[in-house]
């Protein structure tokens, strides 16, 4: 019986890694190039801003769902808290926007720590509790003094609006998210997260600190939507509880992430790109029936590609799993 030579196995792994990182670099380069020129060619800035936002949101969600196995239906809570943190710091405390944005991320991390006990739950129980917690966050902000949160009219950031600068900050946030998830996908933490997701007891037996690993994954998943909320508040210049905690934000994030395929770096990118462009095309061609057709398209996608676009591709070609980011 021929045993694989350890050195040839190592060379094989190195070759796979090389292809993996080359593909990741090419994908990242194409994404950077594409978005970087948008403000210079007179393209629709807002459309591309939100495209980047959804890629970031779906990628963040991927960490929680694809890597850790948690389905947070209240994912919007991080986004909403991030949006209000930026708005309050800028408008009420006079922070420069660029200084306020890291605090939005920090607020997301603090909220994630507060929600951390819910990680003991799993499956649908976690999803429901997460949804309830998002609702509680919204209620807390709604009932805070109007001088601070702006009441039902929300907070306007006024003359702080800088569409092009905020566009590039969104781009930087997206690249940071993609870089983090690329690192995570090959790191010990990423492997531990997947192990815990697949079989927590077995992972525990192998010496994985389940609580710590889950918490790290949860914190990464919470940071990016909170920053997204802050950047979006800056871009649109307005934040209120109705829109900042809108469940549609979670719904879109989940759909885009699942459409691409959970558990890979490229899945949420492909999912967001395909779905946002599809949405745009349908919106332009069918002004009155756009949401109905989009709903049908989403149903068909989930029915025929239940693992998402990238997930289905990898199922057809399992060998590519080593190379596709």
């Amino acid at each position: 019986m021929n045993r694989p030579n350890p050195s040839s196995r190592s060379a094989d792994r190195e070759r796979a890694d090389r292809i993996y990182y080359t593909l990741a670099a090419l994908l990242g380069g194409a994404v950077i190039l594409y978005f970087a020129v948008v403000p210079f060619v007179g393209a629709n800035l807002a459309f591309h801003f939100y495209l980047m936002l959804w890629i970031t949101m779906a990628s963040g969600f991927n960490v929680s769902s694809g890597f850790s196995g948690y389905m947070p239906f209240g994912y919007v809570a991080f986004y909403g808290v991030g949006a209000f943190t930026t708005a309050i710091l800028v408008k009420k405390l006079g922070f420069p926007v660029l200084l306020a944005l890291p605090f939005s991320g920090l607020a997301g991390l603090v909220l994630a720590l507060l929600f951390a006990p819910t990680l003991r739950l799993s499956g649908i129980y976690f999803a429901i509790v997460s949804l309830a917690l998002a609702y509680i966050c919204r209620l807390v902000i709604t009932n805070m003094p109007e001088e601070m949160t702006g009441g039902s009219f929300g907070i306007q950031l006024g003359s702080q609006a800088e569409p092009v600068l905020s566009f590039y900050v969104m781009m930087a946030t997206m690249m940071l998210a993609l870089g983090t998830i690329l690192w995570l996908s090959r790191s010990r933490l990423g492997k531990a997260l997947r192990a815990v997701r697949d079989d927590a007891e077995a992972a525990d037996m192998m010496g994985v600190n389940i609580t710590r690993v889950r918490l790290y994954g949860w914190l990464i998943a919470a940071f990016f939507p909170a920053v997204c909320g802050g950047v979006e508040a800056w871009y649109t210049n307005i934040v209120d509880t109705e829109t900042a905690f809108n469940t549609l934000i979670t719904a879109k994030t989940v759909i885009y992430a699942i459409a691409g395929g959970l558990g890979t770096v490229s899945g949420p990118i492909v999912g967001a790109l395909v779905m946002v462009w599809l949405d745009e095309l349908i919106w332009r061609q069918f002004p009155l029936l756009n949401l109905l057709i989009l709903g049908l398209a989403t149903v068909l996608l989930v029915l025929f590609l239940p693992r998402g676009i990238v997930g289905t591709l990898l199922r057809w070609r399992p060998a590519w799993r080593r190379y596709v980011p």
């Binding site: 629709n44 800035l45 801003f49 009219f153 929300g154 979006e232 209120d240 829109t243 809108n246």
Partner: peptide, 28 residues
């Protein structure tokens, strides 16, 4: 949808080349 509004107004201005605009419904 607040996240749709900026795109729509940009489309009206850049692609539809409208001369002026009416606001959408509601303050947000």
């Amino acid at each position: 949808d607040k996240t749709t509004v900026p795109k729509v107004y940009e489309t009206l201005i850049k692609e539809e080349k409208v001369d002026l605009l009416f606001g959408p419904f509601g303050s947000t």
